[in-house]
């Protein structure tokens, strides 16, 4: 038992060494495949936030087209004055895999992100942001003329 523990310890130390050397472009954390897997929007929310309360807010501004001609490229800009936001999620409720991206922001970064995402069909674009205490949620409806997820 103890030997196995030691073995684990050396493997762990080895991976740290590798990441430090730059030979292995180490992840800051393993890609959370469960968060990104094919599941319903509600299941994604439950997985990410358990039963925590999501506070609806108007303080997160979402800029996105009312109608997106091509669901494969939907430009999105999100911006907010909410302080101390450390984590931001971009979700699309009608995508087979609702979670699009998650961002960790340090204190030196504004809550400002522009990205281009895919939308399979018309639906809500949901932004969820976390500070140390609260979880905020804002959403916006985007009509999609031609889906962009390969249905």
């Amino acid at each position: 038992m103890r030997r196995r523990f030691l073995k684990h310890l050396t493997t762990f130390a080895g991976s740290i060494w590798l990441s430090g050397s730059g030979l292995f472009k180490a992840a800051y954390a393993a890609w959370p495949s469960d968060n990104f897997k094919e599941q319903s929007y509600q299941d994604t929310l439950t997985r990410l936030f358990n039963q925590a309360e999501l506070i609806e807010t108007h303080k997160i501004k979402i800029k996105a087209p009312k109608t997106a001609e091509n669901g494969a490229v939907v430009p999105v800009t999100i911006q907010s004055d909410l302080p101390n936001i450390g984590k931001v999620y971009i979700l699309v409720d009608n995508n087979p895999k609702p979670l699009s991206a998650e961002f960790n922001l340090s204190n030196d970064v504004d809550f400002f992100i522009t990205a281009r995402i895919k939308m399979a069909a018309s639906g809500q674009l949901i932004i969820i942001a976390m500070d140390n205490e609260n979880i905020y949620k804002a959403s916006r409806f985007v009509k999609v003329s031609k889906g962009g997820c390969g249905n």
Binding site: A29, W31, P32, N35, F36, A72, V73, V74, V92, N95, K97, L99, S100, A101, E102, F103, N104, A115, R116, I117, K118, M119, G148, C149
Partner: peptide
């Protein structure tokens, strides 16, 4: 950040 295949 962690991204998915639904980024353009």
């Amino acid at each position: 950040s962690h991204l998915s295949g639904s980024i353009s």
